[in-house]
């Protein structure tokens, strides 16, 4: 049977202080994705290999890794694409590695939280007034940004994230826009304050790779650029009409 070599970056903190590559030969199967090959290794070759996965269908966002230096969801990336190999597999770039292919997500989740990705309303309507209605057009305004699965691929595609670890990053801004463009939301003033500040949208220099690697076509790069336009407009408003600017 044909086989492929996977060069997997391993990090075993109890044994070595630096990560190292380990080669594994796996049988090639046309229907296999990278994750299947890793599962094969775990089940048949080396049970100590550590990595994350859950849904196997590009929904949970936990199986992201660098494959040949490109961030991908390994459950929807076919082995076949990389023939004849060898295929290099490493943990997502720029994140702190806990073990083998598992990275620490705390930093990312903290950044997402900074963007306040939830509905903020100035005044709650009494229940008797009924639900908050939305037209299909209003839904369309933000739907694309709501598709984000927090897979962190966009962070690993962004050199600014690597250079400036405090940069809030692509997905956080896309998620902020998800709510900024929601007709039921009044929170943009609060979000602007955070995202237009240091380490916010203006750290972005539009490399654009975040949108290229995003598996859900969220287009975080677009979200950031649109935010910059909003930022510029807000700034002019505050200069020309200081009494009208956002609190």
């Amino acid at each position: 049977m044909e086989s492929v070599t996977l060069q997997v970056l391993r990090y075993l903190p109890e044994e070595k202080s630096e990560p190292f590559y380990q080669d594994y030969d796996v049988p090639f199967q046309k229907k296999w994705v990278i994750l299947d090959a890793l599962n094969y290794i775990k089940d048949h070759v080396d049970g100590t290999l550590t990595y994350r996965w859950s849904c196997r269908m590009g929904v949970c966002g936990s199986c992201g890794m660098m494959v040949n230096d490109q961030p991908v969801l390994t459950c929807e990336t076919f082995l076949e694409t990389y023939l004849p190999g060898p295929i290099r597999i490493a943990p997502l770039s720029y994140f702190a590695v806990i073990r083998d292919l598992v990275v620490n997500t705390d930093d990312f989740l903290g950044k997402v939280k900074r963007a306040k990705p939830w509905l903020i309303t100035d005044e709650l309507k009494p229940v008797t007034e009924g639900e908050y209605r939305q037209t299909p057009d209003e839904l369309k305004e933000y739907k694309q940004y709501s598709m984000c699965i927090n897979c962190m691929l966009c962070y690993s595609a962004c050199p600014i994230v690597g250079l400036d670890p405090e940069f809030v990053g692509p997905a956080a801004v896309a998620l902020a826009q998800r709510y900024n463009y929601d007709s039921r939301d009044d929170g943009h003033g609060q979000r602007n304050k955070i995202l237009m500040d240091d380490d916010g949208i203006y750290s972005c220099t539009l490399v654009g790779e975040c949108s290229v690697v995003c598996p859900k076509a969220v287009d975080p790069a677009g979200a950031i650029q649109r935010y910059k336009v909003t930022g510029a407009v807000e700034w002019w408003k505050s200069v020309v009409m200081p009494w009208k600017s956002d609190k």
Partner: peptide, 9 residues
């Protein structure tokens, strides 16, 4: 808490 590896750019 084993030491985490922070790659440098």
């Amino acid at each position: 808490r084993p030491k985490r590896y922070q790659p440098r750019m």
